[in-house]
Simulated scan of single mutants.
Amino acid sequence: MSNTETVIQGTGIICKENVKGNFEIMPMELLDYVQLELITHTDLVVYMKLLQLYNNDYGYAYSTIP
């Protein structure tokens, strides 16, 4: 078994062997909003996709779907 460590950017949290590939950090309050039925699971997925496509240079998310 390897001893791989990954440091999450912006937080400094060190993860060992359980972080693979790309991931996004989301506010934990979003899960509360889903539980309180203020937003749906679909809303959460759309939010995460837009977060993934966000461009700091332009200040907005640019998606490939018009």
Rank of each mutant, 00 (worst) to 15 (best):
29 E>L: 12
17 E>V: 03
26 M>D: 13
3 N>F: 11
29 E>M: 11
48 M>Y: 08
53 L>W: 13
54 Y>C: 00
34 V>F: 02
13 I>Q: 12
52 Q>I: 10
28 M>I: 09
18 N>G: 00
43 D>H: 02
16 K>Q: 10
42 T>M: 05
31 L>H: 12
43 D>P: 03
29 E>D: 14
25 I>H: 03
49 K>H: 13
27 P>V: 04
14 I>H: 08
5 E>Y: 14
21 G>S: 02
31 L>N: 12
21 G>C: 02
4 T>R: 14
14 I>W: 07
19 V>M: 11
11 T>V: 00
14 I>F: 08
34 V>W: 02
2 S>H: 10
31 L>A: 11
55 N>A: 04
50 L>Y: 07
38 L>D: 14
19 V>E: 07
23 F>I: 04
58 Y>C: 01
34 V>D: 05
32 D>H: 11
44 L>M: 08
19 V>S: 04
19 V>G: 00
58 Y>E: 06
55 N>G: 06
30 L>S: 04
52 Q>Y: 14
25 I>S: 10
22 N>D: 09
16 K>D: 04
7 V>I: 04
47 Y>K: 00
54 Y>H: 02
45 V>Y: 13
39 I>E: 04
8 I>T: 00
5 E>D: 08
50 L>S: 02
7 V>L: 02
48 M>G: 07
18 N>E: 08
20 K>W: 07
12 G>M: 01
4 T>C: 11
46 V>N: 13
13 I>H: 07
47 Y>N: 01
18 N>D: 06
37 E>D: 15
14 I>A: 00
29 E>C: 03
39 I>Q: 00
7 V>G: 02
46 V>S: 08
